[in-house]
């Protein structure tokens, strides 16, 4: 250990920079949250003050709950996210297993074909996706969104999961084969439980972009009954631009579910990123 790395001034400066940046990162969220609990007057008089007995008000939340169908939006977002994650993980793990486990003609080629989708964003194909959804009658259904997000998530999922599946011991699988297990049983019973941590990483990586996406809900499912929470809050806020209480409350309500997910999964997410799963 050298002097520079023990120097208390350096440590203090490090904390100084980090605290400053943490404040910059959290400030907007903080301002939105505290002001959503204030009366209109207090919002404008002193935007940085915490709500107190005099300025406390829930009028914004009342407007939001009366006017917007946030529970429906929330439910739609939930269905889309959970179903997409399920299919990404199931189909992704199956394909990853096939690519990692068996040697067959075209194995490498298929790997490369799937890898295409890691770098090329699916949004480029939007015009034809919409056309396809229109002609198959899937416009304004949650199925359309689930299909798109499944396709979008698969390439990276297969890539990450096949890396992990290569590390599963061959002896274990061969022991299973000698015991007469079918390839399907080997996959579902032996291999899948062993790659659970990698599956969790893939799930967390996919969850946030799907939940937060605005582009596809806006284009494929803008109907009232299929709006996701992200699109729903966008439209709601657009309509209530001048009602600051309602806008701030809607923003706070949109922040809440993501924050809850983040608190639950942040350790998994950070471990996933730092373990080099995306290298």
């Amino acid at each position: 250990m050298n002097k520079a790395r023990r120097n208390p001034v350096n440590i203090a400066a490090a904390h100084g920079i980090l605290i400053l940046y943490t404040l910059i990162a959290l400030f907007p969220v903080f301002v939105i949250l505290i002001n959503s609990f204030k009366t209109r007057k207090a919002i404008f008089r002193d935007p940085l003050a915490l709500p107190d007995a005099e300025s406390f008000s829930l009028i914004g939340y009342q407007t939001v709950l009366k006017q917007g169908d946030f529970f429906l939006y929330f439910q739609n977002s939930m269905i889309v996210t959970v179903a997409s994650l399920f299919f990404v993980l199931l189909f992704g793990a199956m394909a990853a297993f096939a690519l990692a486990e068996y040697r067959f003609k075209g194995n490498t080629l298929m790997g490369l074909y799937l890898a295409l989708g890691i770098m090329i964003p699916i949004r480029i194909g939007t015009v034809a996706i919409l056309e396809m959804m229109v002609s198959s009658g899937l416009v304004n259904t949650l199925t359309a969104l689930i299909l798109v997000y499944t396709a979008q998530g698969l390439p990276l999922a297969v890539f990450i999961l096949s890396e992990f599946m290569r590390q599963v011991s061959d002896d274990l699988k061969n022991a299973g084969r000698i015991d007469g297990l079918s390839e399907y049983t080997i996959f579902f019973r032996l291999v899948l439980p062993l790659v659970k941590p990698a599956m969790a990483t893939v799930a967390v990586f996919n969850m946030i972009p799907i939940w937060n996406d605005l582009w596809f809900p806006l284009i494929l499912a803008p109907a009232e009954e299929t709006k996701t929470l992200t699109l729903g809050s966008q439209v709601f806020i657009g309509q209530f631009v001048t009602d600051w209480n309602a806008v701030l409350s809607a923003l706070s309500m949109a922040i809440l579910p993501v924050m809850i997910l983040y608190v639950i999964f942040s350790r998994q997410l950070i471990r996933g990123i730092t373990s080099g799963a995306v290298k």
Partner: peptide, 25 residues
Amino acid sequence: WHIVVFLAPAMLVYTAVMIFPLFNT
């Protein structure tokens, strides 16, 4: 057949919803 079964769902969804529309666009 098991290889086909393992690969087919991912390949189908990926090809139909991502690659095909991309080139169609």
